[in-house]
Design a protein around this nucleic acid. Structure first.
Lengths: 246, 246
DNA sequence: GTTGACTCTAACGTTACGTAATAGTTTATT
DNA sequence: AATAAACTATTACGTAACGTTAGAGTCAAC
């Protein structure tokens, strides 16, 4: 069998097989004169073993040793690894406890200072920040983030209220217009927001609108629209706001 | 405070501080004209935060985002991360169970089919085969492999038993003699084995011993001894056995 | 014989630093 | 002040397990 067959059969990538060959973990039984790797039935069995141990989080180095060793070694390795896993689980429990405590602690804090916590800019886990950085450059993103942080409490709150409105609008779009119109409707929400803020040049808006329409993610399907756009858009708006407002 | 002070204070390396500076995670408040990093009290607090999240296994990228965010973000991050940890723990439990099952299974299997299952020479995936080929030539290796495969089941079993003994001896060496003596002790194990087999010329042994001592891998440190030698030695022995026995 | 599907070998990118290597700076000692 | 010791800085390669191009050759079908 050739690489792709094997890869598809067991559900790994061709690259992975190449890699295993490169590190000598699984060298195919034969190779054609043109250099194609041909895997035998035995190779497949070995591969199963490898994947089994990989599933258990063994490093490839160890797997290599294990499959090259008599059976008793495997059992020993399993037991050792089991102990490692138990230890790991203990550590996880520790970490979870620590987090719980911290959250409790913070909760107390929040009740005390409640007021400012409420708004909810979550630029921190923005999965599109990377994309935004590539689109607009690091400086723009960093500056925007900094500006966000430096907003007054009232400023944040106001901004947050705006976003809440947008979120509501976006949410309703998803349920109230046919899929094909989602993009247009989304643009409208956006447009309205920009108008409301009132300090964007028309050019800036055009750029945003075009970008939005161009982006596959936003026109492909509704789920992605909701998931991707709301975050990405917020980011984009913030950055544009930072750049273009006078 | 300068780097080393900080590093020693919180128990991390200078390199780590350099790294955090390089990736923009913690940039010291000021630097002297000569380029020395000077950390402020605020920097130390931030560092504490960083180390806290690091303790919880957050990737630095996320930590960077988190410490750049208002407090409520941190809570959300904590909750998200907590969920991740719970999932991880679930996976660990799965893995442990799988291992337990496998061990049980193997136990049964060994009892059932004991005979051939137990030996298991897999020279086909021997990572040192290439090296062996270079050292001793392809023909020797191929012949040896062929011979291995052609052994009767009892023959394999006997051979396997020998190797089991060697493995045990090697394993004990690693724990029972000082590092400096590992090489010597390893040679002794080897020597004993050869004597037991009883069909090696003294010359063959000399060659083996010398090769063994010459090889960096075997004298450099204990870990490598254990990792490399046990496999390599097995190979070397088989080949020498093939060549020199009469 | 040309296309499409597949294969090969590089070689860089990723995480969080460890580990030199080389060179300049500050502090302590003589 | 001269010298040594201790410290600091900046590259830059190495690690684990592949993902991801990129460029080029191969095989089977039409």
């Amino acid at each position: 069998m050739k690489v792709k067959e094997v890869a598809d059969l067991v559900g790994i990538s061709v690259r992975t097989l190449h890699h295993y060959d490169a590190i000598g973990l699984l060298t195919p039984a034969e190779t054609t004169e043109s250099g194609y790797r041909i895997y035998s039935g035995d190779d497949l069995e070995t591969l199963q073993q490898i994947l089994f141990f990989r599933e258990l989080d063994f490093p490839l180095k160890q797997i290599k040793e294990i499959i090259n060793s008599p059976a008793f070694d495997q059992e020993e390795a399993l037991i050792l690894h089991r102990n490692m896993l138990l230890k790991k689980r203990g550590q996880l429990d520790q970490m979870i406890q620590t987090i719980d405590k911290t959250i409790e602690h913070k909760k107390g804090e929040i009740k005390m200072t409640d007021k400012e916590k409420f708004v909810g800019f979550d630029f921190s886990h923005n999965p599109y920040e990377q994309e935004a950085r590539e689109r607009w450059g690091d400086k723009a993103v960093d500056e925007s983030n900094a500006k966000m942080r430096s907003l007054s409490k009232d400023g944040k709150k106001a901004y947050g209220a705006e976003f809440n409105g947008i979120y509501r609008d976006l949410a309703s779009i998803r349920h109230e217009v046919p899929e094909s119109d989602v993009a247009q409707a989304g643009i409208k929400v956006w447009y309205d927001f920009l108008n409301k803020i009132g300090n964007y040049s028309l050019d800036a808006f055009k750029g945003l609108g075009q970008m939005y329409v161009d982006d596959e993610r936003f026109t492909k399907n509704i789920d992605q629209f909701g998931e991707g756009l709301s975050v990405f858009m917020r980011d984009a708006m913030a950055i544009y706001a930072d750049r273009h407002k006078k």
